[in-house]
Design a protein around this nucleic acid. Sequence first.
RNA 1: AGGCGCGUAGCUCAGUGGGAGAGCGCUUCCUUGACACGGAAGAGGUCAGGGGUUCGAUACCCCUCGUGCCUACCA
Length: 1046
Amino acid sequence: MIEKSYNPKDIEEKWYNFWLEKGYFRADSKSGKPSYCIVIPPPNVTGSLHLGHALDVTLQDILIRWKRMSGFNALWLPGTDHAGIATQNVVDKELKKEGLDRHQIGREAFVQKVWEWKKQYGDRIIHQLKRMGVSCDWSRERFTLDEGLSRAVKEVFIRLYEDGLIYRGDYIINWCPRCQTALSDLEVEHDDVKGKLYHIKYPFVAGKGHLVVATTRPETLLGDTAVAVNPADERYKDIVGKTVTLPVLNKEIPVIADEFVDMSFGTGAVKVTPAHDPNDFDIAKRHNLPFVKIMTEEGKMSEGAGPYSGQDRYKCRENILKDLSDLGLLVDVKEHLVGLGHCYRCKTVIEPYLSKQWFVKMKPLAEEAISAVRDGRINIIPSGWKNSYFDWMENIKDWCISRQIWWGHRIPVWYCREMQNEECAMRSGIIVSRETPEACPYCGAGASALIQEEDMLDTWFSSALWPFSTLGWPDETDDLRKFYPTDVLVTGFDILFFWVARMIMSGLKFMGDVPFRDVYIHALIRDAYGQKMSKSKGNVIDPLELIDNYGTDAFRFTLTAFAAQGRDIKFSVDRVEGYRHFLNKIWNASRFILMNIKQPLLLCKDIKEIDSLSLADRWILSRLSDVISEVNAALAEYRFNDAASILYQFIWHEFCDWYIEMSKLTLYGDDKQACNAAINTLVHVLEVSLRLLHPFIPFITEKLWQDIPLPDRREVEGLCVQKYPVPQDGIFNKDAESKMAVIMDAVNGIRSIRGEFNLLPSLELKAMIRAFDGTKDVLRENLVYISKLAKASDIEIGEDIRRPEDSAVAVKPAMEIFVHLKGLFDVELEIKRLQKEITKINESAVFIKKKLTNREFAAKAPETVIEENKANYKDFIEKIQKIQENIEKLKKWGKQNDVQMVEGEFVNVKQSTVRTVEGGHIELQQVGAFTIDGEKIDVTQGAAVVLKSEELNLNQSISCLSLAENASLNFSIAPVAMAKEDINVNKSAVGVMISKKIKTEGTSSLIMIAKEVEGPVTTLLDWRSALAFGAAFGGVLGLIKLLRSR
RNA sequence: AGGCGCGUAGCUCAGUGGGAGAGCGCUUCCUUGACACGGAAGAGGUCAGGGGUUCGAUACCCCUCGUGCCUACCA
């Protein structure tokens, strides 16, 4: 027997190992099945699992498991990324702890160290992924620095170079002074920072006067080689061509005219620092200005900065401002918001820096990539991201790919120092080669004359090849033939440009085909307040902690349920707990079903072979069929959250709340055949549901599925390789669904009355239902269900039912339900209730009426809409009328139902004792009868308890009176209704309970009876309070006051 | 500066040109033989505000406010 509640820890590791041992995740490059392939966005090898990964892989796993079960040769190719700068930084830090720095130990030793690090910690992320239950083909795991992938990187570099798409040159690049490397534009994060705009005087060399320039970076004036104004600027018309003196350095620089200058900004005059600003660089190129570098790679002032040489860039700013101020050249300082670039790895402020780097020409590559998306060869989902994609692609700039780091792919370039002939010189001695060259291929200089390029490639250069390099490219492998193009790429939008766009470009260039047909872009996960999670903010939720606390399945289901397209996810732990409850529900439903499979097994192989399916059976099978199509459809469109909620709704509210409850009737009944049909249906629906749920919550479904004693089970097989359900696994049956709707209406109607009158769930009700024709027949045929689910032992159904007195009503389409309430009835409450319902319906009715009477509507609205509205209106009006009739009737009754106080007396008292909850005991006195005014009253249910002791508390014995079980009390009392009206009591009151609770097998029901007035006792609704109350006031046997209706 | 998105129940969010849904939370009742990680019944919304298109707008368009993000060379 399985445990009472679900404990994920017991099963996850076991079944993951089972899957691995069976090799279920392995794809077959020779398979004849259609293939389906996803390459994982490779996490950083030194990273650890965060929520973003968790979401990403959960969605991929859902797709892969779904496709695998749906008969595809599914390959999910896993791997990790070497993450050049990030990994290098990590190892740098380690070295620092040892008091070392990578330059001290040298390049080779450092790289060796990183490899060791990778060996030691590189598996961590993989282990963490496995805990997510991912069904990757681990036999194909790749690492971007693997030999094969490195070969692909070299090959791509060389081919791009040969095609003239890679070049080397001096340009302004983004330089991180801390990481000491160039970065691509994408690797710079822009943040608006409060800064200042300084207005500085540049005196004219000839004559008096000066020009005022505005700058946010005064320290760069040391590298100024001109001042620029707009040629159209009237203010400076006569100044162009003059010479000004560069403050502090007293260098003469020209005033030039360039259209770039924005006349409206600052003073309209710009200092030009060609070596430290990309715009100034362009201006300088146009005007042949000199380039003066004033900073070092560490972000300190260099010799070019003259007297400030050696100072930190910010210290220098302070000093220069002071000097300018002293010289009277600083004329104004204004607050100014500056968009500052920061290194995406270390957040250091980026320095635009003139430097010799390698670049990829992007425009030619981008063109094809744009049309691939435009013409639909690649589908971006949600499609809103297409705009961003096009926008970026159409304005793409060349990609700086060289990095001054040691960990990664070294640029396969050598330089010939000798350049002995023209060709060699023409090529600047650049040798691009797959192998280390023995000699210069141009001038024949020997190996000793050749120096290898020190720089490494941007990590994203290798990631861009991931969809084909992992499949074996440049070799023409079976995998490549079979799985390229891959089917879908699942990732967050944060790497759309970094990675997705570049993969598309390189796939098209080198494979001649798109790398994937769909790109599914999911949301980013934020914390409960919508903030991005980051270590520095300390708001990071560790997925492994969630897994430990709630289990992988609950975590996965939460992520899935949240994964609505196009919105960020505000993640909170509470939600995970909620979905764990869902798993517990599944667990217990399974437990119930497995417990009820009776021996010998009567399980049938095919549910369609079972005759004598009941309405409930047919209904749930029909619902199942529908759910199967909906889930498949949702998955096909990447509507993960829809799929999750469809399943949640079905399992919990249809299967558990309705079907399982109904099945109990047949399960515990005498009809063997019906019972067999029910068991088969239960098992069938469970089995199919587990298959349906498997991609979402693989562990619990596998475990439970293994526990089902299926007749044709092959012991060794796992659920994860079973067929994914198709609609034929259910049996669609419209008739059953509409009949069930009638039954549900009836049950809901009765339950509503029970709930609103606060009647005990255990109280058996007596109901009458007025219904006609088909509805009547359906109700009659399925009376047992209504009786069971609504707890109504006595139900009468007919066309000419008349509403009994003291009954509450529920009006449903095609039926009116009356529930006898007898003494429990409260006219006022019922009238209020019904009037409220009328108000509600009336609002809708008025609205529709308005529409229907509008001539334009009748003329222009589509026929179907008009019909629909008419039908709705008719229903509303009928309902309102029926309810109104009921209200009228109630008002009449209300007059007769004056409340009276009646005295009564118990007779034939026998005594017995039961224990109270608190450890005391209650003496029960069995009563043969009960009289009021000498008239003998029958008692239907429960025991009337009279507290007769003078001073009782709960730990003392309480003498009670218990009424005979088979007696009946015709004018029973509505305890709750009374209590709601504030019963008033005084000290002479006697507490009376009519309660089944006191009987061993009983349920509870409570009545406080009171005489005369003094203070409300509304709160005395639970039986312990009642006992206490009775005890406090004491009581006298026989002195009973009853509220009596009529 | 431009672009994109969001604003729906107390919270987190679905959703659609024909008068609004879920989960959690809340209120009341209940230990009935899978489950209190449960069952039953309720309460709760001018669908941010204003204008327009339409027979009809929460949905489509425009504007405003609030909010988040992306891109960008404004010194």
